[in-house]
Simulated assay, not measured.
Amino acid sequence: MHAPHALDLVRTRRASLRRLLTPARLRESFAVARPPSLRNAAVAGMQTSLAVLIAVAATHQSPWAHMEGFPALGALAALFGRFAPAGRRMSVVLLSGLLLVASVGVLSLASIAGATPATMLICLALLAGALTWFTNHWGLGGPGAVIFVFAACAAVGPVDAWRTVVERVLFTAAGAAVAWCICRATDRLRSDAPMAAAPGSERPLLHQWNAAGRIALCAASAALLALAAGWPHPAWAAIGATAVLQGSHLHITMHRAVQRTVGTVIGAALAWGILANQPTFWPLLAAVIVLQFITELVIGFNYVFGLICVTPMALLMTSLAAPSASAGMPMARVLDTVLGALVGIAFALVFSTLDDRAHLAAHHENARAG
């Protein structure tokens, strides 16, 4: 059997693009599904919200109040393993906490080493690829590598002393430790729903490496394009690209892109309304806690619902870490998200395999027949 001609492959990709852009595929992005376990989602939301509250409030009352954004990042370890068996949950939370600490530490080290903005973004992209591999290989499940990339983005800013690097790592680790303790104390509240497999964890090792490499290249492209455009937060484009490419199939990637764009636009408007009132620390923290809990309740129904809450929550957490950067963040988030989504779709299509495109064609035909 002869290898497919290059022109035939291009035509196949063009056909795949047409299928992705059909109204039916776009409507699928807004379908409401039944979450695997609303109880487990509520427990994970409660655990994460409580961990963020304790870790951030304690830091705010300490002499290191300027570090209060980093324990919030470490506390996000409680998001992982909500469907893990009882004996596996704590190891998932521990590994997730270690990856959050490593994400902050690696980018902080690159910064103090004198990396240029472009080099920092390349380091972030390479880290995104590595984090994707670890997340899939260790079967950490949702919400996936995008949380670790988000944590790494918080460390992209300049570092002026080794003490700052150490403080960032220690406070992120402290937040992760709080999350582990809270999950350990309350894990009995979860139901025994089976663990959802992480996207890509069932694939051969070579496929996992290919997926990690694709995400690294895509994240670098999106972030460097944002940097070239002069946008203030180019690292956020890497988050969008990573999130989109976590989809296991081409139509899921398109759904992610559409859902992330729509949810971010609405969520950014909500964040703008909150930040326009220039809230003080405690109302800001309360808003983060409420949004975190609601996110976990609704994201299982549709990713759009989750992003409507995740976007303002992420921007408010960024505001906690850097209050002076609040102005203009909502619009920057929208631009970076749209860019990341577009670059992610392009990479997913260009680097798709014949099996990927065949799966899309079969899904398209089955949906038409149904």
Score class of each variant (00 low, 15 high):
C153D: 12
I299R: 08
T242N: 13
V166T: 14
F293G: 06
I294R: 02
L73F: 04
G344F: 01
V338A: 14
A197F: 04
L205V: 13
A361R: 14
R34D: 12
A276V: 07
L98Y: 04
A152P: 08
R88W: 09
T22Q: 13
A125H: 03
L307S: 12
S62T: 14
V166P: 00
A269E: 09
R214K: 13
T295G: 07
M329Y: 07
L21H: 06
T253Y: 04
A3W: 08
G267T: 07
D355S: 13
A174G: 10
P85N: 11
Q292C: 06
A77P: 05
T318C: 10
L225N: 00
I294N: 05
R368P: 01
A362T: 14
R368A: 14
L124G: 06
M317D: 00
A321R: 03
V56W: 02
F150P: 00
L320Y: 06
T261I: 15
H5L: 14
A369S: 13
L99N: 11
A327K: 04
G267A: 06
T119M: 15
T119K: 09
S111P: 01
A185G: 09
A152D: 05
L98V: 10
A362N: 11
I294G: 11
D336G: 02
L95Q: 14
L206W: 12
D160P: 00
L109Y: 06
R214F: 00
A346R: 03
A84G: 06
V101S: 02
N366D: 14
G340W: 02
A286W: 10
L245P: 01
I299W: 02
S352G: 15
R184V: 04
C183W: 01
M1T: 13
S91W: 13
L250E: 09
G74L: 07
H249S: 13
A173P: 01
